[in-house]
Amino acid sequence: MKDPFKPLDYSKLTTYSIKGRHSKVDIKDFSTPWEKGNRFSAFLDTLPSILAGNDLCCVINAISCAAKNKKQVCFAMGGHVIKTGMSPIIIDLMKKNIFTLLSMNGSGIIHDLEIAMVGRTSEDVAQSLGNGSFGMAKETSNLLNQAIKNAKNKSIGLGKAVGDMILKENLTYKHLSLTAEGCALNIPVTVHVAIGTDIIHMHPDFDAAACGAASHYDFKLFASQITDLEKGVFINAGSAVIMPEVFLKAVTLVRNLGSTLDDFTTINLDFIRHYRPMTNVVNRPTLGKGKGYSLVGHHEILIPLIAAGVIESL
């Protein structure tokens, strides 16, 4: 039986010369091989000017330009950044007057305190959850809940209260504490808590009202720094929900109050792309003159890489 369907005849297909075609990839943008003995700055020059290779260099350039021009470079983070050993890198950038604001979610102060206190953090949740001992470290709870009470008594933010306490207690590894170094360097450190998410909220001496008030104070302090973000940089590292939401509210708040906030750079760093960081950090706030970047990778590689690039360029 004859096939009733006819194959497409494309013998008269229209073609063009590749020589006149616009192409998105050009050999002038290719990477170059590494030469033994070169400096780190030369390594950046070897990266391809394509996709993330180009974005990494743009991110380094944006942070460097903001620092050179004494503009805000705000670093927001989740607790995982501390757990990947990044505190010395962040503190160094604070000391070099590159980072002008440090913000974190509630887990940040837990890991920050434990590092300052005993030089170790991050319990084995799978091992301790079954017997109900997860989150029951008494020293962590006692000190942080005392810091919350101090914040209430002194009418200060939670970040400063924790940093002040670490310095007052003269904890062994206070030089590795982000909150303590923030206090010592007079750089604002803000903490943004969601009640019920952190281990100290399970302890009977936790004062939710005082914690909420201290965290709200920090939100207002955070927003005051975002007021000056024009021509600056906002970085979100490893916070999938809290810090992107806080940032978005601060942006609309300061714009509502009349601050100019049109031309700035946002950067999201994480090992996967999440919805809120992409929409609330990278895309929505930068509509217009701004520019948003998303670099996917591990904190323990991306953050030192970017820091080294910035330091070399300065």
Rank of each mutant, 00 (worst) to 15 (best):
L229F: 00
I187L: 08
G290K: 01
G309P: 09
G20L: 00
N153I: 02
A116Q: 08
C57D: 10
I18Q: 10
L295D: 01
S177C: 02
Y293D: 02
A147L: 00
G182N: 12
T179M: 07
I199K: 03
K152M: 08
T179Y: 04
L56G: 04
E169M: 13
K12R: 14
E123A: 02
K168G: 09
N170F: 08
V81N: 07
I89G: 03
N150M: 06
L253Q: 14
N105H: 03
E139K: 12
G53R: 04
L295F: 01
T121S: 15
A237L: 01
I195V: 15
G258Y: 11
K95Y: 09
I200V: 15
S313E: 15
H298M: 13
A161Y: 05
D205T: 12
G232Q: 03
T266I: 00
P4F: 09
N153Q: 09
N150F: 05
G78V: 02
G258H: 06
I82L: 11
M1Q: 14
N105L: 05
K19F: 09
N97W: 11
G196N: 05
K6I: 14
D45L: 07
K174V: 09
G53M: 07
G290M: 05
A184I: 03
A76E: 06
F43M: 12
D29G: 07
S31N: 12
L158R: 00
V189Y: 13
G290C: 01
R21F: 07
L47R: 06
I63E: 06
F40K: 01
L158C: 02
D45A: 05
V81M: 12
D198K: 02
N61Y: 12
H201A: 11
I195W: 02
A137W: 13
K28N: 11
A213H: 09
I110W: 01
T84R: 06
D263S: 15
D198Y: 00
H175W: 03
N38A: 14
L257E: 14
P285N: 00
C58Y: 06
C58S: 14
V59N: 04
N170D: 14
A67F: 04
L295Y: 04
F271V: 12
H216L: 15
H274A: 10
W34R: 04
K291H: 12
L8G: 10
D198Q: 03
S239D: 08
T121F: 01
G132F: 02
D207G: 11
K289E: 12
H192K: 05
F99G: 10
I242M: 14
S17G: 11
Q146G: 00
A223C: 05
H274T: 10
I272W: 12
T197C: 10
G159Y: 04
M1R: 13
V251A: 11
I110N: 06
G53I: 07
V118N: 08
L178D: 07
I148P: 04
N142A: 15
S313I: 01
G292T: 03
A137N: 14
D29R: 10
V118H: 10
L44P: 02
N170G: 13
I82D: 00
I306E: 04
V296E: 13
A126K: 08
N142K: 10
K12F: 03
V81D: 07
K174E: 10
L253D: 08
K220D: 04
F134Q: 03
G157F: 04
C211F: 06
